[in-house]
C-alpha cells in the first residue's frame, strides 16, 4: 500500500473543486441566502488549501491566515444577512435580480 498516499495535491484538488462548485453556485442561484452560502463554500476551499500548504511546509502562517479568513467570513455573513433581512422584509419574494436599489 505504499503506492497510495494522500499527498498535498489531493487536498489542493479538493479545495479547488469546492471553490469551483461555490463559484458556479454563486453565478447560477438567485436566492441571496444561498448565494451567501456559496461564498462560504469558496472560502472553505481556500482554507483547505492554506492548511494543506501549512502541513506540507510545517509552517504556522497558514494557520494564522485561516483564522483571519474565519473572522472576515463571520463579519461578511453578519453584514450580508443584515442586508438580506432588510431587503426581504420589504419584499419577501425578492431575488438577487431585484436588488437594484443602489443602481443610479
Amino acid at each position: 500500500m505504499s503506492g497510495l498516499e494522500v499527498t498535498t495535491g489531493w487536498y489542493l484538488t479538493l479545495g479547488a473543486m469546492l471553490f469551483l462548485i461555490g463559484g458556479t453556485g454563486l453565478l447560477v442561484r438567485r436566492n441571496p441566502l444561498i448565494m451567501l452560502m456559496c461564498v462560504e463554500l469558496m472560502l472553505n476551499g481556500v482554507n483547505l488549501s492554506f492548511i494543506a500548504f501549512a502541513d506540507r511546509f510545517g509552517d504556522v502562517h497558514g494557520h494564522t491566515v485561516v483564522l483571519f479568513v474565519l473572522v472576515v467570513a463571520a463579519a461578511e455573513v453578519v453584514v450580508g444577512l443584515g442586508l438580506v433581512v432588510a431587503v426581504l422584509r420589504a419584499s419577501p419574494r425578492a431575488t438577487a435580480d431585484d436588488l437594484s436599489a443602489l443602481k443610479g
Binding site: 487536498y11 452560502m37 462560504e40 485561516v66 463571520a74 455573513v77
Partner: peptide
C-alpha cells in the same frame, strides 16, 4: 475532519465552533 487529518487540530475546533455553531445557525 480533513483539518484534523492535516494536523490542524485547533483550526478544526474553531471550524466546528464558528462555522457550524455560529454561521450556519445564523443562516
Amino acid at each position: 475532519v480533513l483539518f484534523v487529518a492535516l494536523q490542524a487540530h485547533f483550526i478544526a475546533a474553531v471550524q466546528v465552533i464558528v462555522y457550524a455553531g455560529a454561521i450556519v445557525v445564523l443562516f
